[in-house]
Simulated scan of single mutants.
Amino acid sequence: MTHTGEDTVHGGVRLRPPRNTLDGRALGWWRTQLLITTAVPVVVLGVLGALIAPARFWLLLPATILAAVGLGCTAILPRWWFRVHRWEVTDDAVYVRTGAFWQEWRIAPMSRIQTVDTVRGPLEQAFRLATVTVTTASSKGAIRIEGLDHEVAAELAQRLTLITGDTPGDAT
């Protein structure tokens, strides 16, 4: 659901901009992900270009272009994502806004939450970050709050578990 104002939706939950930003370390986490994603094909093309003399130009040219685009994206996109991504949890709902080009605003009323999970991949662990995944009965899928400090994520998961346990409804 994309929207810019504050409107009441079913159950009295208000659609409004979430208040919380992600942890600042998310910038480094995103940059590292982009660098790895860029480095793998660049290294493969570079090695092949070094080994296959007749195709050297046709392998090193795309490697150079890919490296330049990857470095540009690494410099620009994480800051942009950081400005856009927001989240908030109230006693009534989980609010999340994500997306760089197409912004997506999602609300999960507490009565619709089925599970709350915390995930920490290897890179997230290195940056002391975590992702909280809130699963609902929605066909749109789970809501993910990425780039949270791992302790904040654990506290958030515990808080959501307590709130949803006390919230009437069958989460369907």
Rank of each mutant, 00 (worst) to 15 (best):
residue 168 P to G: 10
residue 123 L to F: 03
residue 53 A to R: 15
residue 36 I to A: 11
residue 69 V to D: 01
residue 136 T to C: 05
residue 10 H to A: 15
residue 169 G to K: 12
residue 162 L to V: 15
residue 9 V to S: 09
residue 84 V to F: 07
residue 54 P to R: 05
residue 87 W to C: 05
residue 112 R to V: 02
residue 11 G to K: 06
residue 4 T to D: 13
residue 107 I to R: 06
residue 19 R to F: 13
residue 88 E to T: 06
residue 60 L to P: 00
residue 160 L to I: 04
residue 135 T to K: 07
residue 119 V to R: 02
residue 11 G to M: 11
residue 45 L to G: 01
residue 37 T to A: 15
residue 150 H to F: 00
residue 166 D to T: 14
residue 132 V to H: 01
residue 49 G to A: 10
residue 66 L to N: 06
residue 137 A to F: 04
residue 28 G to P: 05
residue 27 L to F: 01
residue 51 L to R: 12
residue 14 R to H: 10
residue 26 A to H: 10
residue 39 A to Y: 00
residue 33 Q to S: 09
residue 169 G to L: 10
residue 53 A to W: 11
residue 117 D to N: 01
residue 28 G to L: 05
residue 12 G to I: 13
residue 145 I to A: 04
residue 76 I to W: 05
residue 32 T to S: 14
residue 149 D to Q: 08
residue 55 A to Q: 08
residue 63 A to C: 06
residue 36 I to L: 15
residue 107 I to K: 03
residue 84 V to W: 07
residue 163 I to H: 09
residue 79 R to M: 03
residue 116 V to T: 13
residue 130 A to C: 11
residue 148 L to W: 02
residue 102 W to Q: 09
residue 39 A to T: 04
residue 149 D to E: 11
residue 161 T to A: 05
residue 11 G to P: 13
residue 74 T to M: 06
residue 27 L to A: 04
residue 52 I to C: 05
residue 1 M to K: 07
residue 80 W to Q: 07
residue 136 T to G: 07
residue 8 T to I: 14
residue 29 W to A: 11
residue 63 A to R: 00
residue 81 W to S: 11
residue 29 W to I: 02
residue 113 I to W: 06
residue 58 W to P: 01
residue 97 R to S: 13
residue 140 K to W: 09
residue 124 E to P: 03
residue 28 G to H: 02
residue 136 T to Y: 07
residue 119 V to K: 03
residue 116 V to D: 05
residue 54 P to V: 13
residue 68 A to D: 05
residue 35 L to M: 15
residue 132 V to S: 00
residue 164 T to V: 12
residue 130 A to V: 09
residue 10 H to D: 12
residue 167 T to H: 09
residue 29 W to T: 00
residue 72 G to P: 09
residue 40 V to H: 04
residue 107 I to N: 05
residue 127 F to H: 01
residue 132 V to Y: 02
